[in-house]
Design a protein around this nucleic acid. Structure first.
Length: 670
DNA sequence: CTAGGGTTAG
């Protein structure tokens, strides 16, 4: 950085505007053509300085401080083309740049081609994989390193320990090894050991280590605090927090975020306000946590306060913060605000440095658009990326798949599936669940099954997606089969899984099975049934025509205060044309919510279909008198890649059918 | 040590 500073001073003094590209082109040319320059005087000056610094630590420092992946790649290409033997130090710096930009493929390639490797090279790679969460790969590399007889140092071991939370044995032996071999245990390594025992759940061991630790710093305390919260012992962690003589920002952040993540939102909020009251200094982390709190609590007021503060302290243009702001506004339903924040950055993109892609902000806004039903905006941004050749990451893809589901665009969904396969993205669990959901909701259950069968290690959500898909298609037996398969694989179903399963039973008339699973859910899995489950059960009995059992069920379970339960009941009365019971149920519903239009409509339709026209008309009149309005139904159809929607006017037949225009241009979706 | 984007629900 000092070199670039010198250079910039030199150029500025001559009024030359320059940026990193200019700077790099010099480096590039120098490497390519070390002896023959045809450079202007200015450049010569630069280059001569560069030559002097070439092998010195300053150049290496400069490379290390490169803030751009493209720049790093250019430089690397230069080194390769020149076919000079890459010095070990330079090579290591290149490696660290690739790792810094998470360009692990390039790093791996470079690493493989290096003529010589030292501990540092290995460590850079291992810590890179560890930071990216590729623990398996990092550990493989570590064992390879040992096999080649390279002795690890404290940096290596510190990274290796990060990967050992699920392979406790390895972590333990690393700990033992470094004790036996007299490796210098500095503060960082000490904390890595502590963290290892915390994350693999050996809190007692960690506690002992902590007590006997000679020089505990705030980091050690933070690790313990976060360990206590993660194990559910928030009282102990708060106690420790309170007893700390001095608290730095990271400690506040740790405890607030921990409380937030473990369901103690109120406590977290109290502490945040306490921080404000004692005028503790906020860091960028604190703001991110606060924004995250605002979005999870849908508390725009808090979010706005934070936004104002951020502008005051000038942090609002930080990429991390911006994406948090975008996310906060879109999760609070203020998609326009989110959009403004996103676009403001786009518009200020005129100089080189800001062309660095802020992929997170973009995927945040895309998911925000999808969440808020602005599919057209989401798709436009997405298509824009495709046509510009920008790599689409899995977050964006998953959001777009959701959009496909909402718009039932099977075609586009298929294309995206192809895109995923082509781009070599690993089909991760989240992506797969959304694809399965997409296929089943867009009508192609067989494709959903096909995809499901390709995945080896499955989780609850994956199973839930496919079970819900079966439910949607009335394949009750398949849903049950998959559910049992899931249990056999040792996966715990959750409340959503049971919604899917019970729905499947009710849609296929499997009353006894449904009852059995309802009991299983409560008794074996300890899941307290929610509104959805009760509604499913009512539907289960009701569809089968067992209307008296519905009543019994409602009374037995004490759910007569839930309007959705009665509503399901009422629609069953309609299906089975039981006007008497329908009347009673509708009355119940109106007791709960007199402004609800649905009971009137259902009841009047029921009367109409039973040729009881006067009664039907009376109900409609009653509605008008009470000023109860029904939301018109809406349907849509796609013709020539255009989405047309139709509003159905209540009680109408096709005469007052009003075509209404929402147009979604599905560019490129052939 | 602490921060951002994605999945399942009549």
């Amino acid at each position: 950085m000092r070199w670039s500073y010198m250079c910039s001073k030199f150029l500025n003094a001559r009024g030359v505007a320059f940026n990193s590209y200019f700077f790099l082109s010099i480096l590039f040319e120098t490497i390519k053509n070390p002896t023959r320059y045809a450079l202007s005087e200015r450049r010569c000056h630069c280059v001569s300085r560069f030559e002097k610094l070439r092998r010195g630590p300053k150049l290496l420092g400069f490379i290390d401080n490169l803030e751009d992946k493209v720049a790093a790649e250019t430089l690397h290409a230069g080194l390769v083309k020149n076919a000079t033997v890459v010095e070990l130090n330079v090579g290591n710096y290149m490696l660290s740049i690739y790792v810094k930009f998470k360009h692990l493929v390039a790093a791996q390639k470079m690493f493989d081609e290096m003529p010589a490797r030292d501990v540092k090279s290995w460590t850079i790679m291992i810590s890179g994989f560890a930071r990216m969460g590729s623990f398996r790969l990092a550990l493989d590399l570590f064992s390879q390193m040992l096999a080649e007889g390279v002795c690890p140092n404290q940096f290596t071991l510190s990274s290796v320990l990060k990967c050992c939370s699920s392979v406790v044995q390895t972590g333990r032996s690393v700990h033992g090894w470094l004790l036996r071999n007299g490796v210098v245990i500095d503060a960082v390594l000490k904390n890595s050991i502590l963290e290892f025992y915390v994350t693999c759940g050996e809190l007692n061991h960690a506690e002992r280590l902590f007590v006997f630790m000679g020089d505990r710093d705030t980091v050690s305390c933070n690790i313990m605090i976060s360990g206590y919260i993660q194990s559910g012992d928030w009282e102990k962690s708060l106690d420790m927090f309170r007893r700390l003589p001095s608290k730095d920002v990271a400690t506040w952040n740790t405890v607030i975020y921990g409380l937030m993540q473990n369901g103690f939102q109120r406590k977290a909020l109290e502490l945040l306000y306490e921080m404000l009251n004692i005028r503790a200094c906020f860091s960028a982390y604190t703001f991110c946590i606060a924004l995250f709190m605002a979005s999870s609590l849908s508390n725009v007021k808090l979010g706005r306060q934070m936004h104002a503060q951020l502008i005051r302290v000038g942090l609002h243009n930080n990429d991390f913060i911006r994406s948090s702001l975008i996310d906060m506004y879109s999760k609070c339903g203020k998609i326009d605000n989110a959009s403004i924040i996103f676009k403001r950055k786009q518009n200020s993109d005129f100089n080189y440095d800001s062309t660095m892609e802020d992929t997170v902000s973009r995927s945040s806004i895309i998911s925000g658009y999808v969440r808020n039903g602005r599919w057209e905006d989401a798709l436009q941004l997405f298509f824009n990326m495709i046509s510009k050749g920008i790599k689409v990451d899995k977050f964006t893809i998953t959001s777009i798949i959701s959009a496909c589901v909402d718009c039932e665009m099977l075609n586009l969904g298929q294309q995206i599936h192809a895109l995923v396969l082509k781009s070599g993205h690993k089909l991760d669990m989240l992506l797969c669940s959304s694809l399965i959901d997409m296929y089943s909701k867009c009508g192609s259950l067989s494709d959903a099954h096909l995809l499901f069968n390709q995945i080896n290690d499955r989780n609850v959500i994956l199973f839930t997606s496919i079970i819900s898909g079966c439910a949607l298609h009335g394949q009750g037996k398949d849903a049950i089969f998959l559910f049992e398969l899931m249990r056999n694989e040792g996966i715990q179903p959750n409340e959503v899984t049971f919604v899917g399963l019970l729905t499947a039973c009710s849609h296929s008339g499997l009353v006894d099975e449904g009852c059995r699973y309802f009991r299983l859910m409560k008794e074996v899995y300890g899941i307290t049934p929610g509104v959805e489950h009760f509604t499913c059960m009512v539907d289960l009995f009701g569809r089968a025509g067992r209307l008296y059992e519905v009543k019994q069920f409602i009374d037995d379970n004490g759910v007569s205060h839930l309007s959705s339960v009665w509503r399901a009941f009422l629609s069953c009365c309609q299906v089975h044309k039981n006007v008497e019971m329908g009347n009673q149920v509708a009355e119940k519903l109106l007791e709960i919510d007199p402004s609800d239009a649905e009971p009137y409509v259902l009841l009047s339709n029921m009367c109409a279909s039973g040729d009881r026209w006067e009664e039907s008309a009376r109900l409609r009149n009653l509605m008008r008198r009470k000023g109860v309005k029904k939301q018109p139904g809406q349907s849509w159809i796609r013709l020539n890649n255009r989405l047309h929607t139709n509003l159905m006017i209540m009680g109408s037949n096709h005469e007052n059918y009003q075509p209404c225009m929402i147009e979604t241009r599905l560019k490129r979706c052939s």
